[in-house]
Design a protein around this nucleic acid. Sequence first.
DNA 1: ATTCTTATTTTGATCCATCAAAATACAGTG
DNA 2: CACTGTATTTTGATGGATCAAAATAAGAAT
Lengths: 254, 254
Amino acid sequence: MPTSTVENYLRRLYLELRGRADPLLPLGRLARAMGVVPGTATAMVKALADAGLVQYEPRGGVGLTARGEQLALHVVRRHRLVELFLVQVLGLDWSVVDAEAEDLEHAVSERVLERIDALLGRPKVDPHGDPIPTSRGQIEEPRRISLADCPPGRSQRIAQVLDQDAAFLSFVQRQGLAPGAIVTVVRRQNAADAVSVRVGQQAPVALGLSAAAKVLVEPASAPRHLTSPRRHSERRDSRSHTLPRKRRPFPAVS
Amino acid sequence: MPTSTVENYLRRLYLELRGRADPLLPLGRLARAMGVVPGTATAMVKALADAGLVQYEPRGGVGLTARGEQLALHVVRRHRLVELFLVQVLGLDWSVVDAEAEDLEHAVSERVLERIDALLGRPKVDPHGDPIPTSRGQIEEPRRISLADCPPGRSQRIAQVLDQDAAFLSFVQRQGLAPGAIVTVVRRQNAADAVSVRVGQQAPVALGLSAAAKVLVEPASAPRHLTSPRRHSERRDSRSHTLPRKRRPFPAVS
DNA sequence: ATTCTTATTTTGATCCATCAAAATACAGTG
DNA sequence: CACTGTATTTTGATGGATCAAAATAAGAAT
């Protein structure tokens, strides 16, 4: 029965640790990511270490223990399933579901989560293309390349977007770069720190390398089903798409 | 930004207050209902009074102010919409949704709640037949009679069940006494403190008066649409009903 | 090596929600 | 009216999560 604060620290830690070499995160990073002053993070991390959930090297940093990672993965699972649910069932916008799921992830019981998982058809990835851990806490992080270091000329499918910032996600969506989209890198302009990307028949879009690095792709020839979420609508002001007209999830009782 | 504890106290207070004459609830009642020791309730109620949410008469009891009631009604709305959602969309059992909604009601944002409300078709009542307040905090509590004081012989429709206890609800459901069911009181046996109720063609069921008082009915001739929720399945072990086979709440994007 | 800079930890305090147990008020009842 | 039993309030303490600000450690720069 970890508190929701504990769950938040563990999830954050897991997320910050992802994709960096060092298995120890400096406390300051964690504090900033959690939006607390450094001293708070120190205190919390000590408590987590006492509980055997993290490994703490004073002045060195903090990492997850096996138990901590397990717990983190369960929280991540809840978070991502809730996100996908919010998009697919309730029709919320991509760019806001991370914030919404932040609260909901702690209120969803195992029972409810199981129903959500079933309703969504045991999905493998969330709306951002991030993999959803299994109910036993296993996750498979495909190694992917980003638009920043993707060979020009080949057709690629957007698979994953690594930033949850609402403004960034809205931008990505407006450019048609959401997961599932097929794109081609036209060329890299190293001098300008940018890449040109063509999506569909539009004129190419210029993306700074730091932005491009957050958009991961896979060869367009790769099988799609396991990696890309079903897509949501792009007509963001239209309400109609969010509300299936007749929902009869149940047979009525006689 | 009231804390979820505050929301809980206000909702509980609202619930305990409704259906009793005195507009002031003794602190002990509130404490028991909240599952805390009396002193805790006293402390909390003082804080709520300072915040202008309740009216507190030391040694007299506690009531809701207008503002407190407004807040309470918004919490009740969240709670009941979530309950209905859990039953109709996720297929959870009637008897457990109250407990599940207890946590979720504090995590659901306005935005999500609006989607849920729309998805359910702006329902008027929750799975127990309790009315759902409007988004502006208005509620209409129909005055109804219970099976305990219902004239024998006339056909009645179950409209509302006033107890959230899982065991009681399971019992009610097993007897086919859930909202929407059509029943007839066969006779009252005052000596036995019981009533006999016939549902469908079954043999009559005997109900103690205290249980019967928790089951509210309306004449079977009354219009149904506003008062009875769509029913959920009674086949509790079957899973199939919970998972609509093909959910396409969205048009896929081109 | 001494000093400066920056990250981290420590210390002391606060807020919220709770409990245990002692003190107090109130309502009967003899 | 005094007495007793019950409900309520007070008091003092605790645990969790946080902040502000002072102390300290470690690296970098001179």
